[in-house]
Amino acid sequence: MRLIASALVTLAFAGTASLAQGQTLKVTYDLSLAGLPLGKADLVSSFKGKKYEMQGNAKLTGFAMILTGGKGEASASGTLAGAGPRSTNFAVVSKTSDNQRSVRMGLKGGRVAEVEIDPPLEPKEDRIPVKPADKRGVVDPMSALLMPAVASKSLTDPDNCNRTIPVFDGASRMNVVLSYAETKNAEVAGYSGPVLVCNARYVPVSGHRPERPATKFMQENRDMSVWLAPVEGPRLLFPLKVSVRTMIGIGEMQASLWSLEQDGKASQPMRRAVRADDAIQAGAIQ
């Protein structure tokens, strides 16, 4: 389940305004598995100049809460530079009814400087060792949600999908490989307009256990996608929806509320991110 959750978050946890004045994007997600509601997640991303800060929390509800007591909190910060974010700090605390684990990580220049995991992961002989090179040129799972647009392209250009995101979560190194699938129209509270639908693949590099059934399943999984909505100010794309097939059904993280605020004031919902004569394929979130 840790691998599945990491994939969701990794793949996973608008309007126009001047970035220098500061903007805050607030998104609430509904979580579900195999069509059954699991809970909610809230993610707040603040931008000031090139700097960003992210705060998120997730809590299972209903029967899932009774079974696991699951909830978690995460934070990340860094700067937006070039083709991707450059994270400096990451922390996550996950809790269930019978255990709790925290991960704290510091990065400098895209290199992992220090990691603290409490309690430490149990050593396993079949775990692929993490090499020093695997900790360079990476981002944390939360910062990976920030996807700056290609400099020479519009926010809704299909090329914005085509990227490989190198992620290190404190224990394992992976690549999330995205590729363009299609363009749809989507509408949730606070946003209405085009989204890029990107296919996603999980490519483990190190820190994983290759013979585990869950690892093999995710590595061969071709039923993963992320829907990216444009955020004009910092010129980036952000997940509106994440869908991942798991061993027990489709897991989804679907935005139910989208709000971009400037100087403490909510912007008007963005109705179009491209000109009326820009061609997009018709569609809607189901």
Rank of each mutant, 00 (worst) to 15 (best):
65 M>S: 12
66 I>A: 06
66 I>G: 05
66 I>T: 11
70 G>W: 09
71 K>S: 09
75 S>G: 11
75 S>V: 14
75 S>M: 15
75 S>I: 15
75 S>Y: 09
81 A>R: 14
81 A>L: 08
82 G>L: 15
83 A>F: 11
83 A>N: 15
84 G>P: 00
88 T>C: 12
88 T>Q: 13
90 F>P: 00
92 V>H: 02
93 V>Y: 04
94 S>G: 08
96 T>M: 08
97 S>C: 04
98 D>K: 13
98 D>H: 09
100 Q>E: 11
100 Q>L: 08
101 R>V: 14
101 R>H: 10
102 S>M: 01
102 S>I: 03
103 V>R: 04
104 R>C: 04
104 R>T: 12
105 M>S: 02
106 G>D: 03
106 G>F: 00
107 L>N: 13
107 L>R: 12
107 L>W: 11
107 L>H: 10
109 G>T: 11
110 G>I: 09
110 G>C: 09
110 G>L: 05
111 R>V: 03
111 R>N: 13
112 V>E: 04
113 A>F: 00
113 A>K: 07
115 V>I: 15
115 V>G: 06
115 V>F: 06
117 I>R: 12
119 P>C: 06
120 P>Q: 00
121 L>H: 11
122 E>R: 05
123 P>T: 02
123 P>N: 00
124 K>I: 08
124 K>E: 08
125 E>V: 15
126 D>L: 03
126 D>W: 02
126 D>A: 06
127 R>L: 11
127 R>K: 11
130 V>R: 13
130 V>K: 12
132 P>H: 11
132 P>M: 06
